[in-house]
Amino acid sequence: MGKTTIPEEELMHPGHIACLGCGGGLAMRYMLKALGRRTIVSVPACCWAIMHGKHPSFALDVPLVNTAFEVTGASISGIRAALDAKGIKDVNVVGFAGDGGTVDIGIQALSGAVERNTDIFYVMYDNEAYMNTGIQRSGATPEGAWTTTTPVGTTGDWKKGPKKNMVEIMVAHDIPYTATVNVAFPEDFVKKIAKGKDIVGPKFYHAFAPCPTGWRHPPEHMVKIAKMAVDSNLFPLFEVEKGKYRITRKPKKKIPVKDYLRLQGRFRHLPEDVIEKIQRGADRNWELLLRKEEFTADF
């Protein structure tokens, strides 16, 4: 008799209108599995705002609030305040926003919410561009990527400069729990979210969610690419608990970032020297993370 490694209860209905092989859909599924039925989700304008389809249908078995782009942090603060006023303690309040709605547009509301030390979860599912509106560049787009607003063409006009480091921004707010999660590692994903249930105060999760449509790769490679992002150290899995770093997965066999980049059409144009630059950046960040873990070990 087989056993499953993550909770079996399904709170997301099939039939939502996400694209084939959507990482964001998987992220929502795992998050609800970890948190259970007593959850309220607030979703700003992002892919998840349209995945329920047209008006009278719902894709989740939990209450969901659709809010404006910039107010996810404010709306979850409000929901928590209302629950406190009614004396309800056992409900998890979650803000589930895309990367554009977090790192660019929603950052001030989120910053305010975590600064007030509201007891909330915030999950940012990172598909590295504004995918819902048609692949426009966001602050979370990695260096070298093609998007519709950084069309490579003949001039080499791809996204310049590195990706905004949202986890470090949240760590700088000195919040109780920050973690990176990845859809290719569901057990780790569910464990980290469930861990947040025992922590009072804001919890921030950076979830890596590949988007086959925007990243220009076949949908069946979705999980494979998410795994490669961790194994090439471009997206390390770690958690920061009250300033103490802990790396939750150290790749046994490191793969070069070139293997990860070559699977995706959005990096097809990159010349060798830019790939080397990305490799150096990844190595540097990994080294930095190892040092941070060592430095904060006895906090």
């Binding site: 209905h13 099939p14 039939g15 939502h16 209108i17 329920h52 008006h55 009278p56 249908s57």
Partner: peptide
């Protein structure tokens, strides 16, 4: 407030 009354399971996405 707008009430959602049916799950997306009525959406037969299998035709895709």
């Amino acid at each position: 407030t707008p009430i959602m009354d049916r799950p997306t399971t009525h959406n037969k996405t299998g035709v895709w």
